[in-house]
Design a protein around this nucleic acid. Structure first.
Lengths: 165, 165
DNA sequence: TCGAAAATATTGAACTTTCAACAATTGATG
DNA sequence: CATCAATTGTTGAAAGTTCAATATTTTCGA
């Protein structure tokens, strides 16, 4: 996948400026947290996408398979939150994955409103290959960006999520 | 807007676990940087979206207006990179904004392949109101999450972007 | 226990994004 | 300087997402 990286890079991408400490009246967009998060997410997501392209699977399907790899049944609602998709989007993505025989639906016997999702054997096998690709990306980042910075960034993101949720 | 926040919150959202230091064979999805970034981005973006809803403007249009608020002409290609959209998506979003008289196109006299985008007076007036909304979000985050953590998170995101781009 | 309200998942229509192809212009090379 | 390649932006079709409405099942209060 290494050789795909250049396809993903754009020479026009904004390189960010140092952060101003105190609130300014009209900061450039590159100082907004919302913008920095969107930019970082876009970049990392593209890299992951490029790696997963080996298996022809979109990032969202990796998330679904990964979450289902615990072997337990996940309701559509729970799954939607876990994989960061809203309900109708998930329903339609699951439809495609069912067609590909990666996952299957089971009606929850305890609450017949619910549908429990499970990974098929085919899905589990694919998950293993996808995990290797995802881990290789993590390793690549840690290498380029530093173990310390990576760990610190993860820590800060977790607490931001806790604060914002 | 404050009263909209609860609409945005989902009780099923994954609360993240502490980060493991050394690379594990099969980490949960919540330990992947790509996932944490996507989750944080989604959350912050939703909050910003809720605030901008006062003016009925999607986040991407705020970015466009903000970038164009320097008064200089930006080519479609440059603009696409600056506002984190790909070319055809930007073209169609600009079409809508031209219909709303927020921006206008000018053919670049120095290179007639290029189209230069400018903000209209109406666009500039809207930008000011949007900036106030965006800044109030930044303030809200800094309050809940801490000035120090916010600044540190921004710093780390910038260097991640530099490393990844 | 009955009926209204809430929770869960899906659907169809409207809208948006993406991909591939195209048109126009400029740059580069023999 | 003529042609071929590269750059820039748009378009139409296909694919994907979102919103509002719906159907089904469960929960809860009278």
């Amino acid at each position: 996948m290494q050789q795909m990286q250049h396809l993903i890079h754009s020479s026009r991408t904004i390189k960010s400026q140092p952060v101003a400490r105190s609130p300014r009246p009209n900061p450039p967009i590159t100082e907004h947290l919302a913008y920095l998060l969107a930019q970082a997410n876009r970049e990392i997501n593209r890299q992951l996408e490029a790696r997963l392209r080996d298996e022809g699977v979109p990032v969202e399907q990796w998330r679904i398979l990964k979450v289902l790899s615990d072997g337990k049944g996940h309701s559509m609602g729970d799954l939607a939150d876990e994989v960061l998709l809203n309900h109708p989007t998930l329903t339609k993505m699951i439809d495609r994955m069912v067609s590909d025989a990666l996952v299957y639906r089971v009606q929850d016997p305890d609450d017949r409103r619910k549908v429990l999702m499970y990974s098929s054997e085919r899905g589990k096998a694919l998950t293993q290959r996808l995990n290797a690709l995802a881990l290789s990306q993590e390793a690549h980042i840690a290498e380029n960006y530093g173990d310390k910075a990576t760990a610190e960034l993860k820590r800060l993101l977790e607490s931001l999520i806790d604060a914002a949720t």
